Amino acid sequence: MTNARRVLVHPDSDALIGSVAARFITKTIDLLDEFDEINIVLTGGTVGGATQRAVRDSAARDSVDWTRVHFWWGDERFVPAGHPDRNDVQAREALLDALPTPESNIHAFPASDEIPDIDEAAAAYAAELRDAAPHDALYPRFDITFLGVGPDGHIASLFPNRDITNTGAATVIPVLNSPKPPPERLSLTLPVINSSDRIWAALAGADKAPALGLALAGATANEVPVAGVQGRRRTVFFVDQAAAAQVPENLIASTY
């Protein structure tokens, strides 16, 4: 199977969100036919949250055996547990609280009031990844990783001009002095993100067009982090018309 990057363009953000939600449910059913359990990496952000709500509200939602799905996050804001800015809080409200997924299958990053030292918090999440990994691997097999993309091209909490390709063997890193508030965050590293079988990045709005265009036209990952995204089997950018304005024509796909 090819791992070429492709762009699927939708008329508007509502069509984009509905399409991603429907594809997610269908693909999850297919994956659970193949594997006993699967691992999904969630993202925050406007489109991420809206997609999660669309999955929750779908008539097909209960076709999935959610008890066999493990949820992880690509990054998290290092704030106290229950804080409304946390991606896991948003995901619970949008989707997870409506699912029968066991609490043990929901792998949230440590909060700042649980492990106050951010380096220790990063190490704790790395250990949780390792505990869920097969054999001597450092992290589990990720089946789908959802990514949002900022107007500056950042993914998870990997920001431009931060040397994101030089993280050594780390799987989780502390992020200090983030250009977006709050200043302290935790993030998976780029190699861990790219270990996913499928990366699904969803972007909406004209403010995302320059970064996506640069990423697909040859910018480096350190310049535009989304340029470094490459899933093992598939890498798909789900975008609306506005976000697709600067995408090279040859990368636009008619189907998934």
Rank of each mutant, 00 (worst) to 15 (best):
L95I: 13
F109T: 13
K208A: 08
R92C: 08
R232S: 02
A209Q: 08
N177Q: 13
P248D: 13
Y256T: 09
N87L: 11
S58P: 00
A221N: 04
I155R: 03
Q90F: 01
A126V: 05
N39S: 14
R61Q: 11
S254R: 08
N105R: 15
D62V: 02
P11E: 15
L16Y: 04
S58A: 05
D75P: 15
S196I: 11
A245T: 15
A59D: 14
H107Q: 12
L147R: 01
F24E: 02
L186E: 09
I164A: 09
I40D: 05
R234N: 15
S13P: 14
N161S: 11
Q52Y: 09
D14C: 01
F237D: 05
F142K: 12
L147F: 02
F78L: 03
V55A: 07
L158K: 05
H107C: 11
D197M: 08
T189K: 04
D207I: 13
T235H: 09
R232E: 14
T165I: 12
E223Q: 13
S58I: 03
G231Q: 10
V79T: 14
D197I: 10
A126D: 10
D30I: 00
D152M: 04
F24N: 08
K27I: 00
T171W: 13
T28W: 07
Y125V: 07
V247S: 08
G82R: 02
P11I: 11
E76W: 06
L147N: 04
K208C: 02
R233G: 06
H70N: 15
E37C: 03
I155L: 04
L190C: 02
V192L: 06
A204R: 01
V47F: 01
Q52V: 14
S254M: 05
N250M: 03
A245G: 09
I164C: 06
P160W: 06
S19L: 06
A126I: 05
W72A: 04
G82T: 04
R198H: 08
I106K: 15
D14T: 15
D75E: 10
T67G: 10
I144D: 03
T43N: 02
A169N: 08
T235A: 07
V149W: 01
V247M: 05
P191G: 08
V247N: 04
I173K: 12
L31Q: 05
A169T: 15
F159P: 10
F109N: 10
G218Y: 07
V55W: 02
I155G: 03
Q246I: 00
V79I: 14
T51Y: 00
R5S: 10
P80W: 05
I115G: 08
E93K: 07
P191L: 08
T220Q: 09
A4W: 10
A121E: 03
D197K: 14
A202G: 02
D75G: 13
I199W: 04
R77D: 06
L32I: 05
L129F: 09
R61S: 03
N161V: 00
R185E: 06
P80C: 00
S187P: 02
A4D: 14
S13F: 11
L216I: 12
A124V: 02
Y125G: 01
L188C: 10
T220C: 11
D136T: 15
D75R: 06
R185Y: 00
I29R: 08
T51M: 04
A243S: 11
P116W: 00
Q52C: 06
I25T: 06
T67Q: 08
D197V: 13
G218Q: 12
V224Y: 15
I106D: 03
G205N: 09
V69R: 05
A50F: 14
L138H: 13
T43C: 07
A253V: 12
L96H: 09
